[in-house]
Computed example of a mutant assay.
Amino acid sequence: MPSRLAERLAQHTPGAHAKKTFFVNSGAEAVENAVKIARAHTGRRVVAALDHAFHGRTSLTMAMNHRVAPYGTSFGPFAPDVQRVPNSYPIRDGLTGAQAAARTIEYLEQRIGTADLAAIIAEPIQGEGGFVVPADGYPPALQEWATQNGVVFIADEIQAGLGRTGTWFASEFFNLVPDLVLTAKGIADGLPLAGITGRAEIMDSAHPGGLGGTFGGNPVSIAAAHAVLDLLETGAPFAQAARIERTLTDGLQSLAQKHVVIGYIRGYGAMIAFELLEPGTTIPLAGLASQIAAHAAKRGVLLLTAGSYGNVIRFLPSLAVTNEQIEVALEVIGEALAAYNVA
């Protein structure tokens, strides 16, 4: 039942406050409805998204993405009242979480202003942006500022949530308690379902009939989501994610000792990435990631490239992937680096 699933999401999302959930079909639809709810609650219009973010391919979410190409190319004009602000990207900015938060907050206050700001939306660990993990202290500092200024803080957990990082939600790594939490992707194991779970007083802000949809929360998807939560509640997927993290990071660190272009390994659980950099610098090594992926594809290994500079290889495997399969992928990556004469 949808009501029981809402109760379970309220139990497992961060925070002990009263919560409500609205079910829709996709991640982008969850983002759009979260923005509607935040605007209704605050009476304000502007939404702030972080640099290197990705939130979807609909009209509104295209405007929220960091990269225009390929997601927004030829599809404009884009929705107004969306502003992008600096994020925390430790390998690039060299800032502590407090310093990065101060920079973001200064931008919010000076370039946008609190009078018109309805919401800040953030992926606790950015997905398409290259699995960017913010410096410790950054997300809760933004949350604290948002609360003090009546701004709704939205955590886009569509990719990182529900076991992917070895916890229920990636927000937990940062002691972050968002006002609204967005779920999709793995919530129904591939069936169309997404949710907005948030503080009851915020969720109640939309007027009757303002939120809705023909197929949101359909019974088959709801049943699948209950099965997913049943499995997560055993704790087994979290253990699998931890195993994958150990195997991947150990293997990548070994590769990095041989190939100095592997400049930055990051992530949690089954959400791990490495960034390719000019040796001894933080300059993105453009083009090599796609070459590695092309080489791997010829060997039967499918890799995802990512990052705003196209220099990241990301691993987003099934939690059922074996250590042996991971070792094969790492071996193929090593072959690719050697084939392109990369030290």
Results as ranks from 00 to 15, higher is better:
Gly163His: 09
Met1Gly: 14
Ala30Val: 02
Pro208Lys: 00
Ile313Tyr: 13
Gly209Ser: 08
Lys258Ser: 15
Thr249Glu: 09
Asp230Gln: 02
Thr73Pro: 04
Arg44Thr: 00
Ile265Asp: 06
Ala16Lys: 13
Glu335Val: 00
Phe22Cys: 04
Ile326Asn: 08
Lys20Ser: 14
Lys36Asp: 14
Pro178Lys: 00
Ala48Gly: 11
Val301Asp: 04
Leu276Trp: 12
Pro219Leu: 00
Ala53Glu: 13
Leu248Ser: 07
Ile154Asn: 06
Val260Thr: 15
Pro14Tyr: 05
Leu60Glu: 06
Asp250Asn: 15
Ala293Leu: 04
Gly186His: 14
Arg92Thr: 09
Gly251Thr: 02
Val177Leu: 06
Leu337Tyr: 12
Ile272Asp: 03
Arg103Thr: 07
Glu32Asp: 14
Ala239Leu: 13
Tyr340His: 14
Leu176Arg: 00
Asn341Met: 04
Ile158Asn: 11
Val24His: 13
Ile125Glu: 08
Arg67His: 07
Asn341Ile: 03
Val46Asp: 15
Ala336Asn: 10
Thr114Tyr: 04
Leu231Val: 08
Pro192Val: 01
Ser3Phe: 10
Arg243Cys: 07
Thr13Pro: 07
Gly212Glu: 14
Gly235Ala: 02
Arg111Asn: 13
Ala16Glu: 13
Leu337Ser: 04
Pro192Phe: 05
Asn218Met: 03
Ala239Val: 07
Glu128Ser: 09
Glu335Arg: 03
Ile112Ala: 04
Glu29Gln: 12
Ile202His: 09
Pro237Gln: 07
Ala289Leu: 03
Leu191Asp: 12
Gly209Asn: 09
Phe22Ser: 05
Ile222Thr: 05
Ala63Pro: 06
Thr214Ala: 15
Arg57Leu: 11
Glu128Val: 11
Ile120Gln: 09
Gln126Phe: 04
Thr147Gln: 15
Gln126Gly: 03
Ala241Val: 03
